[in-house]
Design a protein around this nucleic acid. Sequence first.
DNA 1: TCTGGGGTCCTAGGACCC
DNA 2: TCTGGGGTCCTAGGACCC
Length: 441
Amino acid sequence: MRSEASVLHLDLDAFYASVEQRDKPSLRGKPVIVGGTGGRGVVATCSYEARVFGVRSAMSTREARARCPHAAFLGGRFPAYGEASRIVMGLLREVSPLVEPLSLDEAFVDLAAGGVTDFSLEGLTAFGHELRARVAEATGGLTASVGIGTSKFMAKVASDLDKPDGLVVVEPGREQQLLRPMSVKVIPGVGPATAERLRRMGVSTVADLQSRGEEELVLELGQAHGHGLWRLSRALDDRPVVAEREAKSVSVEGTYEEDLTDRRVMEAVLTRQASSVATRLLKHGLSGRTISIKVRLHDFTTLSRSTTLPSPTDSASTIARLARTMLGDLDPSGGVRLLGVGVSGLADWVQDDLFGSVAEAEPEEELPELPELPSRMRAQWWPGQDVVHARMGRGWVWGAGSGVVTVRFETAETGPGPVRSYKADDPELAPWTRPTDDEVS
DNA sequence: TCTGGGGTCCTAGGACCC
DNA sequence: TCTGGGGTCCTAGGACCC
């Protein structure tokens, strides 16, 4: 908690639905519901006109149709949302370099790290109004709710107080007074399960929570959660605004209109999902050691299985093979409504100056010289993939890209090593050969 | 015919090592 | 021959967030 209200939270109102209304005037003033439109879809966002009928985010589309049959039901145009989001995040970065996006429509901004110097109530209020006006102008009329406070927690609570199209500044020292009468559900991390446990303890407001000792909360809710709630109930929040957070996992999942019962179909689904995960890993220059599958049965019980490899992969075929093998451990014969594939334990490997995770763990390790490598290795172009796998001795080299081949050298002895990029027509790559059939498995 | 998709973080238990 | 902790890694599941 800071002595000045220098953390800002901005939240675009009913974001997806507002973009639709902006782009299609006939939808303005009408209930608009964006989300899954199939039999098992849920509402992602709905316009305020739809909320009047009791439609809410995460409600099943079936129920939303029952409550508001005359609404426009839309599947969503994510490129348009992404573009609007980029514009807004760009505006925020003009305010301060420390911008932490939470999703397409939400971000924290550290005002103290930027150009703002007047943290008086009047100064911040004027600043907030101006920022909202800039957002509306730059996005063709999208409105945002803004909260400003002494911490992330307070800024977020504040932005929720006057939605939509609102601005609330919580002055330093007024946090307790504001929070005490509120439901414990305002605290991030208190969802339905925690709220119910707290209710059984006789805790429903923040003031109730403040009356409980830290030990009691830790005993009831676990170390991290209990300690965290004890602090947040007192508005104690030191979490910094963090601009660049690295991805920790990449996953793809899908819920099917009808339960899958044929194992061969499930394997085909996993294979396709593995490809899609691999494509995204490649696009972002990532690879990961842990491959997971997620299986949701007809009765909604959710199972997961994972396997950790000795070194990271971005290979669609490797991910797919492991995913199918893990499915073999499970009994999905009663029907499966959801299947998913994910990769975690990610390591960067595209930037020239980066080393792999194993090398990072043991920085002293001597790594082989790269320039002489190409003449000594053989490359494998995996069928249908813009990916190169090359083998050298007992080691492996990965590469990928369009027009550029990026290679990471690794041997069993040294682990992941340095990375180098070549143009696809670089003569250094000439010695590489296409794989023979027995090398592609 | 209730209940998406993409994530993050935490916990608990077991293996394994010192 | 029996009894330790501590630390790390891995797996499975669950809560939560937008």
